[in-house]
Write a protein that binds this DNA or RNA. Structure first.
Lengths: 157, 157
DNA sequence: CCTAACGTTTAAGCCAACTTTAAGGTCAAG
DNA sequence: CTTGACCTTAAAGTTGGCTTAAACGTTAGG
């Protein structure tokens, strides 16, 4: 299979496939005498696997660490470990999200409770002091938590 | 207040504060004849507000759109709107996370169920076909979903 | 008067995960 | 033999949210 077909069959772009090869993520590639890449049929599945793992929240670095390149040699223990750690990560993120949601809900309540007939600055101060007073324990959802859901959507191909 | 003190009091770095000014996020700044920036005391609160909003999942663009620069003039309606949209975003992300967690849990189950006495490749294929067969509806947690929780942690100052 | 600790600017660098661009080689059909 | 669809490469660009560097001015203390 050459790259165009692999791209069509996996749903990824050619550039993305080449990129994965360049970072050592996709090693199942040979060359024709003319320089063209040739892939075995399994490559489709591996790419789908990579995409799925990404979809489950793994970084490419993590995926590379787990994916043996050779489908016959999975490190079960390491894989299970990584999966369990990922579940823990997800649960931590869920907790942060819940916390953030609570904060926002409280803020909505505060704002709704008093229409604009009262001093805004004082109101803002009240709202904020409540938010900060309510133990915003560290970087709640911060740095690496949530990424904007709106404009990031750029699917393959 | 000059920038060093503001940095100390808000917990942000000076470069970050200047950066916020440069993108039009922090407008409450004057200059001394010598060029030094001077800030009113409220700047501390505004910066904390920005950090909190970020922590709640808002991008700097969103924050700029909501923060009027002048504390006396909040657009209540727009703010409420944005907050409600953010809650919806968070809930969508929560759903994706739950879905991803289910997927991973299923995968763990699959792997645990059969120790390494069986053919790995066949097993992998089974596991994956189950994952893909189970309607991995689109980019579940993909593109803009989760960011690694491990190495992103680089807090201010 | 010197030094150390502040402040200023612009520009470039970093991260991940790609995409885009530019400039070219290969190949099958008509 | 030319056209057009394929493939190749290296390098640069993208996004967001900053940090770091370089080169310089200011100010307080001894």
């Amino acid at each position: 299979m050459i790259i165009g077909e692999l791209a069509r069959r996996s749903g990824l772009t050619q550039s993305r496939i080449r990129f994965y090869e360049s970072i050592g993520l996709l090693k199942m590639v040979d060359r024709r005498p003319n320089g063209y890449r040739i892939y075995p049929p399994e490559a489709v599945m591996v790419l789908e696997m990579i995409a799925t793992a990404q979809a489950a929240g793994f970084s490419l670095d993590e995926i590379r660490a787990l994916l043996p390149g050779d489908l016959e040699q999975w490190d079960h223990a390491a894989l299970l470990d990584a999966l369990r750690r990922k579940v823990a990560d997800i649960e931590a993120l869920e907790a942060r999200l819940a916390h953030g949601k609570t904060q926002i809900a409280a803020l909505i309540g505060e704002i709704e409770a008093r229409p604009d007939d009262i001093d805004c600055a004082a109101n803002a101060r009240r709202v904020l002091s409540r938010m900060f007073g309510a133990k915003t324990d560290g970087p709640a959802l911060a740095a690496g938590g949530v990424r904007r859901s709106g404009k990031a959507g750029r699917r393959s191909a």
